[in-house]
Every structure is written in C-alpha cells, then in structure tokens.
Design a protein around this nucleic acid. Structure first.
Lengths: 386, 386
DNA sequence: ACCCAGTTTGAATCTGCAC
DNA sequence: AGTGCAGATTCAAACTGGG
C-alpha cells in the first residue's frame, strides 16, 4: 500500500499536483487501522480520527421514525415514546443534539476537500440538512433515491413513500471536492447524471439473512446505491468512513472499488455480519477500476507546441465551423485575424464578441477539403507523448 | 354560494359526519373577500385571517438561492437566473425567522383538519421542514417534483439539479386531513400515486410573458403540479390560500377545479398579471372533473446501470457477433478496447470505423459458451423496474 | 399543412491554476 | 487574497423560419 494517496488516489477533476495530495497513510492513519469495522459509539470514534484524515463520509443515521420510540440520546440511552407537543419538542431537540454532535465530529475528521453523504427520510432529513448548513457544510446536491419497488401505502391515507433523500455536502463553500463527472456521465449513457436515481430496494441474494432466514438488518442499503456514491465522490485509494455501518454495504462496495474504508458500529451482531460479508468481497483489478479519464486531468498542451513540432505550419489559415471568421497561425503559436491578435482562445472570443472561447474546439483547419478541429492535432500530440 | 363547505366540500377519505364540516363562509369569511388577490405582506395578511378558516395552504416561498456571479452556458449565452430582491436574505438566521413567522401564521389560519404544502429546493427546504416540525405540523409526505426537462449543470461540477421537493403536512398529528386517494389512483393508471411526480417545467403558452416577451415571473410553477396538489388534498368549495401568490398558478387551478381561493402578493406587478390570468380561466363543470391519464414511457436504461446492479461484472469481455472485435467493461460502464474507450455505442462505432452503432445489439457476452447480446440483460433489468 | 434545421431557454448556491 | 487567463462545459422542449 505504498502508493496510498498517489496516482489514482487523487482528485480526478483537476489533474494538477497529484503528488502533493495526501492519502490516509500520510495523515496519521496506518494500514492496520484501516479497512476494519470498529465497535463503539460513532461520535467518540469520529472524534478519535486525526483531523482532516478522511476523504469521504457516508452516513445512514437513525431516521427517528416516530413509531416505535427507537430514539437514542447522545449517551445511547433510549428515549421513551412520547405523545404531546412538549415531549415531541424534547424528542426533536435530543435528535438534533445527537445529529449536531456526529456531524461536527465528521466535519473535523474530513479533509478540507472531503465531502459527506447522508441518507434519510422525511422523518429526519430536514433536521439533518438544516444542521449541516448551520455547521458550515456546503450542500452540493440533494439526491433522490427513487425506489422502483417501494412498499405500498396499505391504508391509502398518503402517497406511496417511494423515495429516500440523500444530501451531498462539501466541508465548506470553497472546497475542491471530488466529483467524477465523466464517470457519472458514462454510467448514464453519455448524459449528465441527474439528481434522481431509480434503484430497487435491497432484496434477493444481496440481502443478508441469519440462520433462521430473518433479515440481519432492517434497512440494509443496496450496493448499487453505494456504487454510485463512491464512484462519484471518491477516488481509488481514498478513505471512506461510515459511522453507522450496520450491515456493511459501504465497506463491501468500498473494498470492491479499491477504496480504503472504516466502519463504526455499536451493535456487535451487525459488526460481525458485516465483517463476514466483506471478507467474501473480491476487489476489482486496476484495469476494471480504470474509468474514463476527465479531459481536465490530461496534461496541458500549449497550442504553440503544435507549431514547434511541425504538426501545424505557420501561415496556416484557421476558420470556425460556420466559416464566418478566419485567422492565421504565426510562428509563436499566436493567431492573427483581420482585427485581432493573441492566443487561440483570445482571438476566438474577440472575433465572436464573446466573453470567452475554447479555441481548441472553435478553430478548424482544412485537411483534404474537410474541416478538422485543431483539438484533433492536440490529441495526436498527446498520444505521441503518452 | 349557500352550499359552501357542504356536499363535495367535505373530506372524502373518512365518509363520517360530512354535514358537520364548516366551509369558509361559516368561519368568518364572506364571499366578497374570497377568490381575490390581496396585495401586501403575507405574514400580516395571514394573521388577519380568522383562526381555523383555511382548508389548504399552498406556499412557494423564496428559496434563498444565494447565487454568485453570472453563469454562462457552453455557447456563452447567459443564464437568466433569479436576481430578484425578494429572494435575498442576510443569512440563515433571518431566513429562519421569516419562515417561522409565516408558517406559524399559516398554522393559526388553518382549520384543525387542514393541511399545508410547501415547495422548495435544497437551498431552503431543510430549514422549512425542520421549522415545520418544530411548530407542531405533522409531515404526511415529502413529494419529489421530478422535472422531465431540467436545466443541465453547465460546468459539470455537480449532478443535474433535476427536482424540487414539496412537503405535505397536517396541522397536527391527530388531524383528519383530506386525501383523495381514489382520485390520485385514477390519475396514475389505477396504481397508488407515488411520492415522486414526473412533470415538465412551465414553458410554452402556459408561461406568462410581458409585452416584450420576457417572463413575468422568474419561477412560475406548472399548472399540472397544482392540479395534483389541489385534487389530492382539497375538495370543491374548500378554501385554498397561497401566501406567495406570484403569477397566480394556485388561483388559476383552484378556480378551474371549483375551489375557493385567496392569494397574497407583495408585488403589484405580479398581482396584476395574476388577476388578468385568472379572469380568463373557465371553471370546470362537475362532470368535467375527470382527468386525463398521463402517458407512461418505457424507462431508459443506461448500460452503466447493469454494472452498478451487478448484472454484468467489471472486467467482462464483450465481443461482436463475428468475434472480430472485443472490449472490456469498466466500473463506470464505459468500455475499453485495444484502441478506443467510451460508451458501448462509441466504442462499437469506433472499432468498426462506422459513424454510429447500437451498442446494445452489437456487443455480446459469453454465457455458458453462447454469445448473448447485452440487450438481453437490459430487458431483464427493465422487467425488474416495471 | 408538414418537415427539418437551427435557436432559445429553464429556481443554478456551476473553474482552477499560476503568479 | 487578488488578478489573469487557459480552457472546460448542456438536455429537453418549445419556438422560428425556410423549403
């Protein structure tokens, strides 16, 4: 694991400074303490992590369903079921305290460019979202998990509750968070991935059962959901922490996708089931893990290099797709049109009267009667340079 | 209007005691004060309503978007964002105060069995939802408006923000709120209506424009959305109040559906446009309240979903029927061949040197020695997703 | 009347590195 | 922290105009 935090284990959206990014191992976490389920209170355990050591948090906290009174105080004592408005306020207040505590601890553990996902339902997600914002998290998206096979509303008193909500938030407004745009686009047939994801509930062979055939965990999340989350917002080698580990879906998918992971779980039974489950997971090899490389991450090639390398001759006439404007290439890689001179981008913007222009895709040259974007020459040069 | 609050104007879900339910006229509101747009501050106007006089509140409050500078599309055209003064707040605390004030006033105005809808985005909806709960409202559903034609994310930095969230809440836990289960089921091809509604944005002839062709209101809601809300949660003759009336969609649909209505609006321009709009609306006759059934399209299944769902493993070798070309599946659903990488369609086209290719029928995989087109897996998945 | 190609537009927290 | 600039980035629908 000597390459933790290097290579693919870095942000893919910028391409800059990959060697400078620290992996978990450089941030006070050793191999032996990673890829494990730790039993205990998630708030204490989160507080025990080195500040800034975590790249991604995925959290599936208790939903505070006001049905069975399964509500826990920060000290893990159980709150009794309550009826009237005063007690309900007490109820929410205690849920809010708990939420604030674990979110604040998670925020401290996150690196500056790390991000956090929380999943919830209308019972708790509004409180979680508001507290997130109060703590300085910067919401990037709310994402809807649209269940293709939800439980119907048996009594016919409400709409079928057919979705859950995920919030994706960066540590701060200025964060340079990881978003693997191209991978998400690839996953969605070359269309931008939207904020609504249609996925089925976790059923069938994926659902963990005990010896008597009872489900091990009441709210086991489908692996497809975590697949999308981890692929979108982390890179191989980065550290993913799940403070409410449960049946270990986050760990199973993290292992498969080559991410480092840590799971916190209070209940020994869940922890044991998760360990057993994850031990069976086969990690993908580097080739399968390789995804579409974002153009932003490709090495920068100045236009002048094409001239220098003889891929384009000084004096060559360039034109835009509509052939309304032309410009000539000069020896230093600058362009000159009838009224403007400067870089391919500057002249492209100037002739159009636009505020900006990507000269690589705007300017074309004539190759045997066909208009070819100069970006094609750049790709050729890149291939030559490996 | 002597039958206000009787007959159809009663809850349909219980069937009990219809004659005892009061209509607006019995609760201190006269005909002359109804079905009107009132200009002024919504909090004061809500406070001025007799307690318990309102059957349904629909609210589309400012979202507090906190937009930065200007945003350009890839073609350099400028996005016409929400820059109106009414959407600007100093900070979360002042937005929260505003929200608490209008929600508290709305709650007092609501009858005990009345309910409230609020629409918002991730910028504000979590704060609204938490405050709702703090005030004693009882959330019945959160409903997702899934936009069929959302604005893309132009910079590729996030998921396409393709939905908005509505919260539907009763005045209290014990409320006997109106829910027209059968109407909703009928609207949905005799299936229970789910909590996610797919509807297009308000465009075309429905969108109000001024003399210069500019949109009258930055955020006009589609009538189809209000149609569903009013049909679900109110009965003819009941009173619907919209404290952020804007372009008057709530009033237009309420009039058409035979509901009484009241709209509060601070801006005189909006109020005038709404009055003009609603004057043109023809109320439906009792028999016409039958609705058009929405058409259901076959769901699109991107190839990546097969990978995500475990129907095809990353690393799987694909080949064409003639077995001249092969390619490998990667974790994000893209393919890689010896010379090309991209979507199933792109790589299929590239290896053949063809301009286009249907990857679904071109690529096959080996199942027990037999070549099976990947389209078969798609059909399998589609069947699982209805 | 229809078709096709090009243009416009929508509640948007929308760049990142070098100097 | 501020400035300059390379260069990356869009989907569904409705509308417009010419043939």
């Amino acid at each position: 694991m000597s390459d933790l935090g290097k290579g693919r284990g870095t942000r893919s959206t910028t391409g800059g400074r990959p060697a400078l990014r620290k992996g978990p191992a450089q941030r006070g976490l050793t191999d032996v303490s990673l890829d494990r389920v730790v039993e205990g209170d998630c708030i204490e355990l989160l507080r025990g992590l080195p500040a800034g050591s975590v790249d991604l948090v995925f959290a599936d906290p208790p939903y505070n369903l006001q049905l069975g009174g399964e509500l826990l105080r920060p000290n893990n004592s159980r709150v009794d079921g309550v009826e009237d408005a005063w007690d309900r306020f007490d109820d929410f207040a205690s849920y809010d305290r708990f939420t604030r505590d674990w979110l604040a601890a998670a925020r401290d553990a996150l690196s500056d460019d790390g991000s956090l996902w929380v999943i919830g339902s209308y019972h708790n997600i509004f409180r979680v979202g508001a507290i997130l914002q109060d703590l300085g998290f910067w919401i990037l998206n709310d994402v809807i998990w649209r269940k293709s096979n939800p439980m119907p509303n048996f009594r016919g008193k409400r709409f079928t509750n057919a979705h859950e909500t995920l919030i994706w938030a960066a540590k701060s407004k200025d964060s340079r968070y990881v978003f693997n745009y191209e991978s998400m686009k690839a996953l969605n047939d070359d269309l931008q991935m939207r904020s609504d994801w249609t996925l089925p509930l976790c059923t069938g062979g994926e659902r963990l059962k005990d010896a008597e055939g009872r489900k091990v965990h009441a709210t086991q999340k489908p692996e497809a959901l975590l697949w999308r989350v981890l692929l979108a917002a982390s890179n191989p080698g980065q550290l993913v922490v799940d403070p409410f580990f449960g049946s270990g879906t986050t760990g199973a998918v993290a292992k498969r996708l080559g991410r480092r992971w840590l799971g916190f779980e209070r209940e020994a039974d869940y922890a044991a089931a998760a360990r057993k489950r994850i031990a069976r997971v086969q990690p993908l090899g580097p080739e399968e893990l390789e995804t579409i490389r974002p153009r932003r991450a490709e090495p920068r090639i100045p236009f002048g290099w094409l001239v220098e390398r003889g891929l384009i001759e000084p004096g060559t006439q360039l034109f835009d797709p509509s052939r309304r404007w032309t410009a000539k290439v000069r020896a230093d890689g600058s362009l000159i049109s009838s009224e403007h001179r400067g870089s391919i981008h500057q002249v492209g913007a100037a002739v159009q009267g636009a505020p900006a222009c990507n000269g690589w895709t705007f300017w074309h040259l004539d190759v045997e009667g066909r208009a070819v974007p100069i970006d094609l020459l750049r790709q050729k040069l890149r291939a030559e340079m490996h």
